[in-house]
Design a protein around this nucleic acid. Structure first.
Lengths: 348, 348
DNA sequence: TTGTACGCGTTATCAA
DNA sequence: TTGATAACGCGTACAA
């Protein structure tokens, strides 16, 4: 119908105030009606609602946030988005956040400390009600997290967590997982088991390493330092690390490999194949994370399924509980995992 | 040091005004100093900057947005996040958005029209500066998009685009892609080529169907309606659709299948294998999209690589150009694709 | 170079 | 049930 106001640059949106004026009521009444407050006459409410529809009114959430000091938005900080794990986590976050009426600002740090700091800063500027963080690999200084929490902005860490600073952490039990899968190998008779380890600065790397050693210890097997090689979390690192293991003399060479995660395992598999060795006959290998490709690999990878979706969902739910003060921070939430036996371990 | 003010519930953040007071200057001077305006004494600026650091000041972006009527935030609406395509698109978006100093609110619609409407509404409420949308499959009513644009909020569609409503669209040339891969099959001697098609309501489905038919026409091959089965975009649909094709008598049965995308192709592959037919000897098959799993499948899938990252990046860049009025809306941006020949087509 | 007044659009509070 | 006023924290436009 009416399509004027092309005059200025900005075709300014209609405000609650303007609607109030047209109806001859106050802005407050409009606000109350729109927000479904009880103390407003039924007829008045209907008038307001229909006028709002008619003029295509959309409440200005920015102004609302300013007045209420609450944005109903949470900031998400992830180290990367390519790896199939995080999209699935984000899906879980999105679902939880959506059903609680919140929104999600997504930032990815590319594993870069500075970018992570930057992200946390701007998210604070945007006054998100809380933060969901999976730390970049190289982060060692936690003062920014602590400062954020002190400012009253709750943080929930997920997957790559930071413990003992009072923030809730959601993750799998890395130590237990890695111990389990290592014991699975021990139980099937492998006796020279190597570990491709993650960065020792990240809790995941630390925990899994510990689990690996614990499993060996439980079965009175010696930890042989030459069988522990740092691979990091990516395919390339897995490849390089495995190459190093393959330099060992056939006598010293491991008969099984426990990789810190699936991508590292894929890299290792590539190296093993290039050496014309068979999986699992010559060298068995297992991963952790259940990458989407694990099932499809030439020798389907035995791994620990890490329920990415659930991690995201639990983390988001935990954060929202804390934002709404229905729960206290500093909890430790463990998400259950599952051993998925395929062919690469030679146990089936 | 000082850690009081635990009194009220909210430990209120420090404001520019408060800093001004402590320094005995006006709030404006603080604002100017913090925003790097030229008209401020060097010594004053330094005083302000150090005070800001000292008190842990973070500018309130919400208040700023309200005053400036600009949020430096763009809304992203995707139909889903599991499918490996969208995470990669989002990565592209994130990169572009980050380097332009914007942020990204992510919403996913689970292919649900209502949820999409909902998302667009709330994103408008949050006064995002622009919208990046890939439509849900079932959307047929475009009035909401048009209304949004009329309100002055630019939209750029990507992948699943909506043409002719004045919004910029970023996508591959579906018709051309599908024609190319179909001709690839024709060129290698297949003469009974089926098509597992997408939903005809989505531009992708339409375009690829058209390309398929065009390729046949160019080579004087008849379109046989029984060889066109609607599969939708997912694995399950591909499986069901392929089952139908496999019900045909061996004489009528296709010797090649062009699937609308890789997931549909995976479903079809499963059906073919269950019938104990070999790929590509008995039935060749190709997909489109280059799903991460395509390379790893038992019979690696020939497909059209769709540069997800570039799509996301171009779309975000285009949107930001329009937000900043450096470009006009209504453009049509085509991202180049690449035929990736693997084993499933039997051509190597 | 610095300061004052006002507006951005909403909601809380208190009074009517 | 409704309204007036003030606040949320910042930036623009002007004046000093």
């Amino acid at each position: 119908m009416s399509e004027r106001k092309r005059s200025g640059k900005v075709s300014r949106r209609i405000t609650a105030e303007a609607i109030a004026e047209k109806l001859g009521v106050s802005a407050m009444t409009v606000s109350r009606a729109l927000n479904g407050r009880p103390n407003v006459n039924r007829k008045t409410r209907e008038k307001v609602l229909s006028a709002a529809r008619k003029y295509g009114y959309t409440p200005n959430h920015i102004a609302r946030s300013l007045a209420l000091r609450k944005t109903e938005t949470i900031g998400v900080v992830v180290p990367e988005i390519s790896h199939s794990f995080f999209p699935e986590v984000i899906r879980g976050i999105e679902d939880a956040v959506y059903s609680a009426g919140y929104h999600l600002i997504l930032t990815s740090t590319a594993e870069d400390v500075n970018r992570e700091q930057d992200a946390i800063m701007t998210l604070q500027s945007k006054r998100v009600d809380g933060l969901l963080i999976s730390t970049a690999q190289t982060v060692t200084d936690h003062s920014m997290y602590e400062e954020t929490i002190r400012q009253g902005v709750p943080i929930v860490f997920f997957d790559r967590v930071v413990q003992n600073i009072g923030a809730t952490c959601v993750s799998i039990d890395d130590e237990d997982c890695c111990a389990r899968i290592t014991e699975h190998m021990i139980g099937h008779g492998y006796h020279s088991i190597a570990h491709l380890s993650g960065p020792p600065t990240v809790s995941i790397g630390k925990g899994r390493m510990k689990g690996y050693k614990k499993a060996l210890a439980r079965h009175n097997m010696k930890v042989r330092p030459e069988l522990i090689v740092q691979s990091g979390f990516h395919e390339k690192g897995g490849y390089v690390a495995m190459e190093r293991l393959l330099q060992l003399s056939p006598r010293e060479r491991p008969d099984a490999v426990v990789a810190v995660n699936d991508p590292a395992a894929f890299g290792a598999i590539k190296a093993i194949q290039e050496h014309r060795l068979r999986i699992p006959q010559d060298i068995a290998i297992v991963g952790m994370t259940d990458d989407i490709r694990a099932e499809l690999a030439l020798s389907p990878l035995t791994t620990i399924r890490q329920p990415a979706y659930e991690i995201g969902k639990s983390a988001a739910e935990a954060l929202i509980e804390e934002i709404e003060e229905r729960a206290k921070p500093g909890r430790k939430i463990i998400v259950q995992t599952e051993l998925t036996v395929r062919k690469s371990c030679g146990c089936v």
